[in-house]
């Protein structure tokens, strides 16, 4: 019988988008050497651009159901219209029509229709993938634009990642979390042990940092902060330091404003690969070491 040991799950979060979360996740993946990486930002997945993954398995994700009205059967009684709370049914020349992007799939219209003219069809255009890349295994997804339930898709790919980690006997799961504080973020936090919050030294960054820290506090994760572009605004950076200190959250890295991240991105590499001797790479390496020590990560292949 395999002994899986405790699986450590690190989720990289940002609150606000564009703080460099994905670039930092990619750098951590490089430093870990062998891990299972999950791109939980299914709405706007980017990690695959740096990892050039080889897809091993493609899976269908049914995000929900959408109602359709058979106009040949419909008697235009308007009952569906009166019941829909999602404003998803409109009259087009007297004929009720479902607006797919507003439909929540609650099925109430179909249940109240006296003619049985409404049915529900699965929304099945989203996909998720199991891939391999140069530093291990990579689970990612593509949510069909406008489809819902990104929270559940995150749960699905997390489960796949956990079982991959067990199969491959890999002890560390690295998750690139979605921005915001909503449902997909909660799905990516649930089950994680460690949160690394990447923020940037701006007023709006500070604002979002407070929000995301209040969320992770609910889930009692071990939390660390990295301040990106710290030199953009030293006063805000200071304020962040003070706030984190009061919240008992260690700041384990301050990365300068550095266009090298973009150059690395254009070359489909992480910063650690592209510019291993750069000051930013140095900061990330130190932050990584701090994570390894404080969380007793079993990093066998430390680069």
């Amino acid at each position: 019988m395999k002994d899986r040991g405790p699986l450590k799950e690190i989720v990289v979060l940002s609150g606000k988008g564009g703080t460099g979360k994905t670039s930092i996740t990619a750098a951590l993946a490089t430093l870990l050497g062998n891990s299972v990486v999950v791109d939980c930002d299914v709405d706007a997945a980017n990690l695959h651009l740096l990892f050039s993954p080889e897809v091993q398995e493609t899976n269908v994700f049914v995000s929900g159901h959408k109602a359709v009205i058979d106009s040949a059967v419909c008697n235009q009684c308007g009952r569906c219209l009166a019941h829909c709370r999602f404003d998803a049914i409109h009259l087009v020349d007297g004929q009720p029509v479902i607006k797919e992007t507003s439909c929540d799939g609650c099925q109430l219209c179909a249940r109240v229709c006296p003619e049985g003219a409404i049915s529900l069809i699965p929304a099945d255009k989203s996909r998720w993938y199991k891939s391999t890349f140069r530093y291990g295994h990579f689970i990612h997804a593509r949510l069909q634009p406008g489809e819902e339930n990104s929270g559940r898709l995150v749960r699905v790919i997390r489960e796949a990642a956990t079982s991959s980690a067990i199969d491959q006997q890999i002890g560390i799961l690295l998750l690139d979390g979605p921005p915001g504080t909503g449902c997909p973020v909660i799905s990516s936090i649930t089950g994680a042990n460690i949160a690394l919050v990447v923020t940037e030294a701006s007023k709006s960054g500070l604002h979002d940092l407070k929000r995301i820290l209040s969320l992770v506090a609910i889930y009692k994760l071990r939390t660390f902060v990295v301040i990106n572009k710290y030199d953009l605004n030293q006063a805000v950076c200071q304020e962040m330091d003070t706030f984190c200190e009061h919240s008992n959250v260690p700041v384990i890295g301050r990365i300068p404003f550095d266009p090298t991240f973009v150059t690395a991105m254009i070359h489909c590499q992480s910063l650690i690969e592209w510019a291993p001797a750069s000051p930013s790479a140095h900061v990330i390496r130190e932050a990584f070491q701090e994570l390894v020590e404080q969380c007793q990560l079993n990093v066998t292949q430390y680069r």
């Binding site: 988008g17 994905t22 709405d43 706007a44 980017n46 651009l49 992007t101 507003s102 949510l143 634009p145 406008g146 489809e147 819902e148 990104s150 979605p178 921005p179 915001g180 909503g182 973009v262 991105m265 254009i266 489909c268």
Partner: peptide
């Protein structure tokens, strides 16, 4: 941000949508 329900709910009533991006691989992809 993103392309799911909150984005749809916002652009739905709009007469015109301005997309802001940056000239990087991430920006183009999204």
């Amino acid at each position: 941000p993103g392309i799911s329900c909150p984005f749809i709910a916002t652009v739905e009533p709009a007469d015109y949508v301005v997309l802001v991006t940056e000239p990087t691989p991430f920006g183009l992809n999204d």
